[in-house]
Amino acid sequence: MRILVMEDDETLLLTVAITLRGAGFAVDPVTDLAAADEALSVNSYDCAVLDRKVPGGDALDYVRHRRRAGLRVPVLFLTALGGIGDRVDGLEVGDDYLVKPFAAEELVVRVRRLCHIREVDRPAVLRYADVELDSATREVRRGGVLLTLTRRQYLVLELLLANAGRAVSRADLIAHAWDDEFARPATNVLDVMVAQLRRKLHQPPLIQTVREVGYRIG
C-alpha cells in the first residue's frame, strides 16, 4: 500500500517514513503543499498523512478544497494543533486526527485502519467494457471467458480497472504489484508484464500507454 506523507520538519518526516516503511507501506515523503498537490494529482494513494501548518498554507483548508473537487483519499492530519476546535475541524474535513507527540505504534494502527477503509470503499467487482475482475474469487473474465493471469498481472489489472479513465503511473503499478519495496523491479520489467497482459486480454486493445506517465484503461 502506498502512503503520501507531508511534513515540513525533515527529521520528523524521515522518522514517520521509516516507521511506516517498517510496517510494510510504500511511502512518498514531501515537505510542502505544492509537492503534495502534485503527488495527489498524478499518483494513487491508499492514505495521506498530512501535517497542517506547512509551506503553502494549512493542509486542512487544502483538503477541504480538494474534497469538493472529488478527492477521496483517506486523510490523517498529524499535527501539533491539539485544541478541541482544531480536532473537531480536522475530523470534519479529514478522516482521522493525531496530535504530536505521538506513539509510532498508534500511527501505524491508524494508517492501517484508513487503508482498510479505502479497500472497503472499492467495489468487490471491477468492470470496464467486457472485462470483469472479481476481487473475492480473484477471477478475471473478458467476454465471459475466464483468463489465466499471474498474481502480479492480476494486481496490475486491478489497479488499472480501479482507476479506469485515469492514467496510473509506472511507480504506482509497481508499488501495487510488488509489495516488498526492496524487491521492486526496473520499469522495463513492468512494461514487459503489461505487454503480456495485453496479449492475454486479446482484442480489441484495452490498455493504453500514456507517454512519460504509465498506463490507462479507458
Rank of each mutant, 00 (worst) to 15 (best):
G90V: 06
A167C: 04
A103D: 13
L14T: 15
L149W: 11
L91E: 11
A39M: 04
Y215T: 00
R68H: 03
V16I: 15
A34L: 06
K100Y: 09
S44D: 09
R64F: 08
R142F: 06
A104I: 11
E119W: 11
A171N: 09
D96V: 08
L160S: 05
L149N: 09
D179K: 06
A175W: 00
L20I: 06
V156I: 15
V125G: 05
T148S: 10
D9C: 04
V131N: 03
R118K: 07
L133Y: 10
R72E: 12
Y97L: 01
L149M: 12
G24Y: 13
A36P: 04
P74R: 03
R2C: 12
A17H: 02
L14V: 15
S135C: 10
V145R: 01
D172E: 02
Q153A: 14
D86C: 03
G56M: 01
R170S: 15
L71I: 06
A48L: 03
I18N: 13
L40C: 05
D180S: 12
G83W: 02
I3K: 01
A17S: 13
V49P: 08
Y215C: 02
Y97I: 06
Y97G: 00
V99G: 03
T15A: 15
L149R: 08
D9N: 05
V140D: 04
R87W: 12
V99L: 07
H65L: 11
A17M: 03
T15F: 14
M193H: 04
D58Y: 08
D191W: 08
I117K: 12
R166L: 13
V27S: 04
E181K: 11
T79L: 06
G90N: 05
R21M: 07
V168N: 05
G214W: 03
Q196G: 12
A195W: 01
V111K: 05
R184T: 10
L20Q: 05
R118F: 03
S169L: 08
L78A: 10
V54S: 01
Q208L: 11
T15P: 01
R64Q: 11
R64D: 03
Q153L: 14
R113S: 15
G83C: 04
I207T: 06
D130K: 06
I84P: 03
T209R: 10
L155F: 11
V213G: 01
T31W: 00
